[in-house]
Each structure stands twice: as C-alpha cells, then as structure tokens.
Design a protein around this nucleic acid. Sequence first.
RNA 1: GGAGAGGUGGCUGAGCGGCUGAAAGCGACGGUUUGCUAAACCGUUGUGGAGACAAAAUCUCUACCCCGGGUUCGAAUCCCGGCCUCUCCGCCA
Length: 425
Amino acid sequence: MLDINFIRNNPDKVKQAIDHKHENASNVDQILELDTQRRSLIHACEQLKSKRNEKSKEVSELKKNGHDASRIIEETKKIGDDVKSLEEKLKELEPQITNLLLRIPNIPAADVPIGKDASDNVIVKTWGQRKTFDFTPLPHWELGRMLNILDMERSSKISGSGFILLKGLGAKLERALYCFMLDLHTREHGYTELFPPFLVNRTSMTGTGQLPKLEEDMYRTATDDLFLVPTAEVPVTNIHRDEILSYKDLPIYYTAYTPCFRREAGSYGKDTRGIIRVHQFNKVELVKLVRPETSYTELESLLANAEKVLQLLGLEYRVAKLSTGDMSFAAAKCYDIEVWAPGLDKFLEVSSCSNFEDFQARRINIRFRDEDGKLRFVHTLNGSGLALPRTVIAILETYQQQDGTVIIPEVLQPYMREIKAITRQ
RNA sequence: GGAGAGGUGGCUGAGCGGCUGAAAGCGACGGUUUGCUAAACCGUUGUGGAGACAAAAUCUCUACCCCGGGUUCGAAUCCCGGCCUCUCCGCCA
C-alpha cells in the first residue's frame, strides 16, 4: 500500500495513477477526509490519556502518604470514560481507512507507457528465429493425445475442467523442466532454493495483495481459513514479514517451485482448449528483496534470469513492457515474457517480472537498517522463472516433427535419462 | 484429538498492580588503551503513532512485554477469549 503521508502530500499523483491504471480504486479525497478526522481524534485522545496518567500518579502519591484520594479517583474515572468513547470512534474509523488504503494501486514508474490495456504494451525485445515447418504444426493438445502424454478427458473426470493429467514422458518432461529451472537459477543466478508451504493463511494473502481484492480467484479451505497458493510469491515474500533485516543481508534472492492454484473466476470461455489456462499448474518463481536504490537494475537482471530459461530451451520469445492499463495493482513496473507457440500461432505469456518498489514491503512490513542505522522499507520484486504449462506447450509445438514425435531440447536431456525424443507410447 | 508447560527488547533472562520502556548478562555500535590481535575500561543501543518546526536535526506527548477483550484511578503483572511454541499420550504417511 501507499504511505498515507505520501497520499496527503501528493493527492494528484495518486489520482493520476488510479486513472492510468484503470483501477476501480478507493476515493482519494474520502481517504484524506477520514484521515483528518482520525488524526484529530488521536490528538484529543492522547491529551486525555496524558491527563489521566498525571492524575494516576497523584493518586499513587496520596496513597503512599496515607491521604484520601477518592476525589481524584472520581475525576480520573470521568477522564477514563471520555478516553473510552474516543477510542471507540477510532476503532471504527481506522479499519475503514486501512480498507480504503488497501485498494489504492501502486504508482507506475516514470518510464511505464501510459495506456488503456495490453494493446498499448511496448515490445522491447524479440529473441530467436521464427521456426518454419514444411507441414502444418499441430496444437499441443493434438500432440499430447497422439503421444499419449496428456489426458484432458480423464483429468476432467477426476477434478473437472481445467486440470492437467500428464502421463509417462509427459510427466517426466514436466519434472525435468522444473528441475532444470531450479538448477539454473541456483547454480548460475545465485538464488537460494526454497520449498514453502502450499497452503497459507489470510494474513499472508493480504500481505502480498491477493486479498482483499481477488478472494474470488482463490481456492480456500473453509474449516481452517487457509488458501491454496496462487503463486509461490505469496509464501516466499511473506517469509520476512514483520522483520528488520540488515543492509548486509541484502540483496536476498529466492527461487521456489510450487504448484499454483487459481479458480480463474471470470475467465470462463477464454483459452479453454488444451493447457493454456488451467486451475492448477506448476511454476518456478523468482523473488528478490533489495535495497531501494538498486531495484530497477535488479528488475533487469531478474528479467534476464527468466529469459535465460527460454534461451537455453531454444524457444522464440518476446518481452513486453506493460502499459499502465495492463499492469497489476501492486506493480510499479512490469515486463511480460511471451513465448511463441507455433501450433497455436500465437505468443503465450510465461512470465511476468515486476518491481513493486516498497508497495508490498509496506503492507507486509519488511524493513532494513542501512549503514546509518536508519530504518527503510526494502523493495520487492518477483517474476516467474517460468510457468510450466505454457513452456511445455511451446516445447511440444516448436519441436514437433512431421511424424508427430517431439525432440527434447538438449539442456533437458540429462533430466530425461538422456531420452532424445518423445515418441508414441 | 486428550493432558500439561510456556510466550518479556537482536539473543538469554529477571520482573511485588503504581517508583518499569522494562534489572542483569550476551551481542552490536562508538571511544580510550594497544606495535597488531585479544583483553580491559567508558559510553550508546527498540518501534509505531500524534503534535511542535517551512523542512531536517531535535523536542513533547502517546502506545507497545504474542494478539484481542475485560477489571482498575492505574496492568508486563489480575480475569476471559484467541493464536503460536514445547513436552507427554492417542491416531497417522
């Protein structure tokens, strides 16, 4: 969330950000109005408390010297009642303000293109050569069925639509991919590997910003009020919640594999075929906690780390700098990586790399003490490195042969017991 | 699931309802001493909020001893609820 002081001093910037992000956000003027009320209540309340503390001390003195204190006790009781009534008003007001504050989006960075949606995103990079085929490339669901590695009919029998059942070398390819990604990021890019819980509590979900806005998109276990993680970002970023780190600890780089669970409420009818959009998918996530002054160079290197996966897999991709209208609520700047899927004849988003500046850190209260002993909020970043299903799609569709077999990219072969191709099983 | 014990500052650990934002020790930081290191000695050492100030520095007030309620003129301390940790038993991959 934003600092209330920042909103107070820069209401127009905040309003402009809301406008540019096309967010259905809280009313800034209303927040400021409530904030003014809040502060005057606090002031009045604290003055009364001060008076009460003084009187209590007098009582203590009088009693110690054996005098009667009943008159002052009566007076003080009255003050206590007034304090209580002011506190009740505050207790009503404060959650209102917090709730409104939680629905104000982050301010986009200065170099983010202003636009209304994805059509205003700017392609900043393309990598790889467009693969040409002397036959018509098939979509992955055809390949998956022919090779008997993907069974969408039976997965929907087990769980409903939008769930993946991988079989044989399909399952092995999946496992090879996330092992390869984790190895790359830990060995080459300096990330620490984590294996976090897959269920998290409400506080964690609120900390990273999935709640309160997106509760409808989350799977929740009713009896325990736990949520299935929609991304490893949630457990991993929350690791240092309410902590004060040392500047010596920074930067912190974490990577984690988790399944991701998303109800995809409201997206019915979109990308329904195959495994483009599913309720459960695997992902390797990259998370960074860094010093504020380094966060934008850290964003570039995080993006490069994610790109590296596709480069090593030999998959064509492009990088888009998201416009204000397409950016997420909490991001200050965001790049999407999109991989080319020849069978679908389109690009698919496989990673979203964002700098949240101190927006998440403020919500989640992660600070660090710098060399001067000052407390400052860290900047948080994250990105997929990468999401699995769409990477699988790109591999199957890019490396398909005329006979329907699929060549395994060389970097994955050591993870596949040196199998070089997936053939009909 | 049953029974018990416990949650105090960066850590260990005292704490009678008022003199406790909190003893003591450790650590960290600064200084003195020292050829260097160590040791010794001296000093500093929380955070949030509100207000004063143009702002910073600073100052004042207020809150915080797991969280939330309650009792009281006054709560780290008493009472109730919750969360978490540990031990034992049961169940279990």
